[in-house]
């Protein structure tokens, strides 16, 4: 009843013709925008399920022609595809766990007010400066080489172990926890670590879910570090591997297994099926990403 009342009050003036025209155009434009975003994926999907004969003769648009799973069975039997998939899973698990450990442990003290944590300003500047200036590609690369981390999984997970932007999201969320909860725990004799684990973490699950998703997606999508740090083909993460197959096509650096794949790429179906396979994990977490993303923005915009 209230909803209808509000609705009618917003449209008290009877709809004019120009208004109706606007509404039709507006809806059409938005649907077109959505289609522009959607159709390329449908095109790639259709190609990946099509017979390469129809693909090569440019007959496939948005529906598979000569339906076949051969491209998928082909890539899913590649050893190099699976090894890169495993590396990426390991990276997501290890990197995500490290991210959470560092973010939570650092965000908790920083979420305290200045009189509860001395030198808080010094600490926040220490972390804030990393958002203003960075050494950039070359010194980072030389550091990893000097530390002997090259060609290990650590070169992929340690440098970004504490993402400062996510740290800010987490600490803004911790700040909303009523200080009375903390005081009660401290009076009961709980230490700070215990307060963090038993009081703060349970009430912060939505924020932790948001940040976990952000960390997972960024680890899954990362490719540049895999390209410059990892040299052993079996340790290359998925996106870097896909880059070498889909974009680079540097035959000189290919293993025999990859070359066979490259040769078969003359048909676009294999290429498109790889794109689809790499998109599926993102598609799986997408509903959650979407659900938590807005709360993430709200967290980020809380003023300190």
């Amino acid at each position: 009843m209230t909803a209808t009342a509000r609705h009618s009050s917003r449209n008290r003036i009877r709809e004019s013709t120009s208004r109706r025209v606007f509404r039709v155009i507006n809806t059409t434009v938005l649907i077109l925008l959505a289609l522009i975003c959607l159709l390329p994926f449908i095109n790639v999907l259709a190609i990946s399920f099509s017979d390469s004969f129809f693909v090569d003769s440019n007959q496939v648009y948005f529906w598979p022609k000569g339906f076949t799973l051969s491209a998928y069975t082909y890539i899913l039997t590649r050893a190099s595809f699976w090894s890169s998939f495993r590396t990426s899973l390991l990276r997501v698990a290890l990197g995500g766990a490290l991210n959470l450990f560092f973010i939570i442990l650092t965000a908790y003290p920083l979420s305290k007010s200045n009189d509860r944590l001395h030198f808080r300003n010094v600490y926040t500047w220490y972390f804030f400066i990393t958002m203003l200036i960075s050494g950039g590609m070359i010194p980072n690369y030389l550091l990893i080489c000097n530390m002997g981390l090259r060609d290990t999984i650590w070169s992929l997970v340690l440098p970004g172990a504490l993402p400062v932007f996510n740290l800010v999201l987490m600490l803004n969320f911790f700040r909303q926890v009523p200080p009375a909860l903390e005081d009660a725990a401290l009076i009961d004799g709980a230490g700070h670590l215990r307060t963090l684990v038993q009081i703060y973490l349970p009430v912060s699950l939505p924020a932790i879910a948001t940040i976990t998703l952000f960390c997972i997606v960024s680890h899954w999508n990362a490719w540049f570090d895999g390209m410059i740090y990892i040299t052993t083909p079996s340790r290359i993460p998925m996106q870097t591997y896909l880059r070498s197959i889909l974009i680079d096509m540097n035959i000189a650096e290919m293993s025999a297994d990859d070359y066979e794949l490259y040769a078969s790429l003359a048909n676009r179906t294999v290429k498109c099926s790889q794109i689809i396979v790499a998109t599926i994990p993102i598609l799986c977490v997408y509903p959650f990403l979407q659900r938590y993303f807005v709360s993430g923005i709200v967290l980020g915009s809380v003023k300190g």
């Binding site: 450990f101 560092f102 600490y123 172990a161």
Partner: peptide, 15 residues
């Protein structure tokens, strides 16, 4: 609280 900041400070310092 200060001890808890050490791991983060170290990792940021190194990298």
């Amino acid at each position: 609280l200060h001890l808890m900041l050490i791991p983060g400070i170290v990792i940021i310092f190194i990298f």
